[in-house]
């Protein structure tokens, strides 16, 4: 393992984060606060309680997940796509680093950023709605697991994309819909049977459910199943990254 290299990549990526602080930190906080205002205030007043939790508080785990997923994917995919686009990837490819070193640096930084943003959202929410976290350790565990998994997923997208359009395609057309339909703003138990069954094919449901459980001890599906699904997705992303590096896919000609 090339520790100085991992540190260098990590630091480089984090610098990019701070340099674009307005875009990286303020934008997600503003847009999330808007969700609170719109859903929490406008809708929430009528719907009151879900599973014994005030609606405003109920959506907090979902909102954090929404940001966690989109930020993890955006940061990691851009992080590795941009050097490919600009050509600076030559240095990474000619350096004495293993694929593992590279992934650790990029994914580690992307996950750190999205976790920071999720925590900022949590802090913002704490000001706006009454909040409780029943299982803080589990909450952090799921936060980290999800951030790492989806940063890895973003890394795969960043390697796969051969243009800025493709870079946006997956987050926009797949991840955002899955997150919105994954119970960010409602319990999937309120859905008609058909949609309830279909929702179980949505991996994001498991993430949000487990995360919500960590807050309020209540989730749509069992925690063990959620863990299993997250681990499965993590394994899939790891396999994809390994394959890509092994074959030099989109990296080497």
């Amino acid at each position: 393992m090339n520790l100085p290299a991992i540190q260098a990549i990590y630091k480089f990526e984090m610098n990019r984060f701070w340099r674009t602080a307005l875009q990286s930190i303020v934008a997600p906080v503003v847009s999330t606060s808007l969700y609170f205002v719109v859903f929490g205030a406008a809708v929430g007043k009528q719907s009151q309680m879900i599973d014994g939790v005030p609606y405003g508080a109920f959506i907090v785990p979902g909102l954090m997940m929404l940001s966690l997923l989109t930020q993890s994917i955006a940061n990691a995919s851009f992080g590795i796509y941009f050097p490919r686009f600009s050509g600076t990837i030559y240095e990474l490819l000619s350096a004495p680093v293993s694929p593992f070193d590279i992934v650790l640096g990029y994914v580690g930084a992307a996950a750190t950023k999205s976790i920071l943003i999720a925590l900022i959202i949590l802090g913002t929410a704490a000001f706006l709605v009454p909040l409780r976290i029943d299982h803080p350790i589990a909450m952090l565990f799921f936060l980290i697991l999800t951030a790492v998994t989806f940063s890895l997923f973003g890394f795969v997208i960043g390697l796969w994309a051969d243009g800025f359009e493709k870079l946006q395609l997956v987050p926009l057309l797949i991840v955002t819909p899955l997150t919105f339909l994954g119970g960010s703003f409602y319990s999937i138990d309120v859905l008609p049977t058909f949609w309830w069954v279909l929702s179980h094919a949505n991996p994001v449901v498991y993430l949000i459910s487990a995360f919500r459980w960590a807050f309020f001890s209540k989730g749509d599906v069992g925690v063990a199943i959620s863990m299993g699904m997250s681990a499965l997705f993590l394994a899939l992303c790891l396999a994809a990254v390994t394959w890509m590096f092994k074959t030099g896919y989109r990296l080497k000609s």
Binding site: L3, P4, A5, A8, K11, P96
Partner: peptide, 9 residues
């Protein structure tokens, strides 16, 4: 400095 780190120094 980044390059130096990348090369493990």
């Amino acid at each position: 400095s980044f390059s130096r780190g990348l090369f493990g120094l």
